[in-house]
């Protein structure tokens, strides 16, 4: 306990400094704030159908993801986020993160880097014990788009000036 608290205390001044440096990133507009942290890092491909869960019922759904970030399924209970999520079946090749994002409970699947192929997981939500089974297909991430080649530029020309010379002729006496 002591070691843990000491470690945590070390971060208090750092957190304070960071708070000064970072502008608030919350995106308002719903009953609950949506934080930009929860919107960044999404997988390039993340295809999930809309899911409607029911208390005490088991719902199966699918997810196709490119595995280079999180892929999330938003769910609600009576237009509200759930109280909490419980992992019933762990994925073999990734992890699951259930958290509050705005007015949704969002279930994120994060594939282990380099994973391709099928995976599956199941989450139970409380209160109400709605269950969601997700069959995942991990695809290879799309190839990175190469930056366009820079257009050739002409070498800058030096500014020229025109000189006028006047010649004098000598006259002999």
């Amino acid at each position: 306990m002591h070691a843990r608290h000491t470690a945590a205390l070390l971060f208090l001044p750092l957190l304070s400094l960071t708070a000064c440096m970072n502008q608030p990133s919350a995106v308002a507009g719903a009953r609950n704030v949506t934080y930009s942290t929860d919107l960044s890092g999404k997988a390039t491909t993340c295809t999930v159908p809309a899911v409607a869960l029911a208390d005490g019922k088991d719902t199966a759904t699918t997810m196709t993801t490119s595995g280079n970030g999180w892929c999330g399924i938003p769910v609600r209970q009576n237009d509200q986020p759930y109280g909490a999520g419980l992992l019933v079946q762990a994925p073999r090749n990734g992890s699951v993160y259930v958290h509050l994002v705005g007015d949704d409970t969002r279930v994120d699947y994060i594939a282990r880097p380099g994973t391709t192929g099928p995976d599956a997981f199941a989450v139970k939500f409380i209160p109400g014990d709605a269950m969601m089974h997700v069959a995942v297909i991990n695809t290879a991430p799309p190839p990175a788009v190469a930056a366009p080649a820079a257009a050739p530029t002409k070498a800058p020309t030096r500014a020229t000036t025109t000189r006028t010379t006047t010649t004098r002729s000598r006259t002999s006496k």
Partner: peptide, 12 residues
């Protein structure tokens, strides 16, 4: 876990 808080700043 504390480092994670640094990344989130005032949202943490």
């Amino acid at each position: 876990q504390g480092l994670k808080g640094q990344h989130e700043g005032s949202d943490f």
